[in-house]
Design a protein around this nucleic acid. Structure first.
Lengths: 177, 177
DNA sequence: TCGGTCATGTAATGGGTTACATGATTTT
DNA sequence: AAAATCATGTAACCCATTACATGACCGA
C-alpha cells in the first residue's frame, strides 16, 4: 500500500508527470521505496480513478501533469499520523545466518566478515553523501537528513555486529577443537 | 527466491511434512522469513519437481514427508556461500520520515517518539527471549543467538535514533520560532 | 461420537519486476 | 538527419496474502 503514499508524498512538492515522478523516485526515494516505471504509471491511473490526484495539465508528447487533490492530501496525512507503520518482516541477510551451520566455520566467518566489509563501505558512501547534501535546500532536506542519519547508524550497527559475530564463530570453533 | 532456501534450510534438520515445516517457520523463522501454508505447499511441489527435495515417506492423512536431496543441499550451500545477499530495499518507517514535513512539528515528534517507544518495547521482549533460550540446544541455537543479538542491537539503534531525531525536530522548531 | 489437530490443496487478489512496444520532441 | 531524451502504456511472470475447501485420524 505504500507506493500509493510515496506517490502522493512526492506530489505534495508540486504537480508532476509520471516521467518526472519516476526521476524523483530514483533521486530521493531509491533507498527507502523504489518504484519502476511500469508500476508508477499504473498507480497514477488508480490514484486518479480514486480521486486522490487529478490531471492538472496536459503537455507535449501526451504528457499528463498530475496534482494531488485535497482528498489525496487528507489520505496522506491520515496515513502518516494514524496508521502505524508495518515493520520489515523479512531479512535475507538474517535468514542466511540461521543456516550458516551448513557451511564450514571458515565459510561462516567469511560470510560475516563480508557483511562487516559491505557495511563499512556503505558507511563511507553515506558520509560522503552527507557532505554533499545542501543542509537547507527545501523541506525534504530537513527530514531527509534524519533518514540519512538512520542509514549511517544502521550501517555502523551492522558492521559492529558482524565483526562481533565473526568473532563468536571463531571462539566457538576454538572451544570445540 | 528465498522461500526456496528457507525451506531447504529447514529440511537440513531432518525430513518433515509441509505441516511440520509450517510450524518450524512459525517457531523459528517468523521474524526473518515468514511463510503461509498456501505458499509453502506450493513451494514444496516446485522443489520436488526440480529434484531439490523428494517425498521420502507417506503417512496417514495423505501426509508426505519431504527430505532434502544432495542437489538441494548443494543448492543451499551455493546460495549461502556464493550468492551475495540482497539488502532490504524498502522501509515504510523511513518512507514516512521523508514526508513528516506534511504534518505539524508536534505530530512529527509524536511519530518519532512512538518509534522510540516501540523499539524500547521490542528490546524488552528480546531480552526476555534471550533468557529463555537454551544456550546449547542444537546447531540452530548457535547461529540463532547471532540473529537474536542482531535484533537486539537493531532495536537499541532504532530507539537511540528516534530519540535523537525527535530532539532534532524540537530544535529546528525552536530555531524557527 | 465429538472435538481437536493433522494434513493437503486451490482460487482470487495485489504488489513488484522485466521486457516489450511505440512515438513525439528537442538537441546536436 | 540522427541521436538523445521525453513520455506513456501493456503483457507476462513471480511472490505473497487471504480465504475457501476438504477430509482423515486420534484421544477423551
Amino acid at each position: 500500500m505504500s507506493l500509493k503514499h510515496a506517490t502522493l508524498g512526492l506530489l505534495t512538492y508540486g504537480p508532476a508527470s509520471g516521467y518526472d515522478l519516476l526521476q524523483k523516485f530514483r533521486e530521493s526515494l531509491a533507498n527507502v521505496w523504489p518504484a519502476t516505471q511500469s508500476q508508477l504509471y499504473g498507480e497514477l491511473g488508480k490514484l486518479a480513478a480514486a480521486g486522490l490526484v487529478t490531471v492538472a495539465a496536459e503537455g507535449p508528447r501526451g504528457r499528463k501533469e498530475y496534482a494531488i487533490t485535497p482528498e489525496g492530501s487528507a489520505e496522506l496525512r491520515h496515513w502518516l499520523g494514524e496508521v502505524p507503520p508495518a515493520p520489515n518482516r523479512r531479512s535475507e541477510m538474517l535468514l542466511r545466518v540461521f543456516f550458516l551451520g551448513m557451511l564450514t566455520p571458515e565459510q561462516a566467518r567469511e560470510y560475516l566478515d563480508d557483511r562487516a566489509t559491505v557495511a563499512a563501505e556503505l558507511q563511507a558512501e553515506l558520509r560522503e553523501l552527507a557532505t554533499t547534501v545542501d543542509p537547507d535546500s527545501g523541506p525534504l532536506a530537513v527530514y531527509g537528513r534524519l533518514a540519512l542519519e538512520w542509514a549511517l547508524r544502521f550501517s555502523v550497527m551492522q558492521e559492529e555486529w558482524a565483526t562481533w559475530a565473526a568473532d563468536e564463530v571463531r571462539r566457538a570453533q576454538e572451544g570445540v577443537e
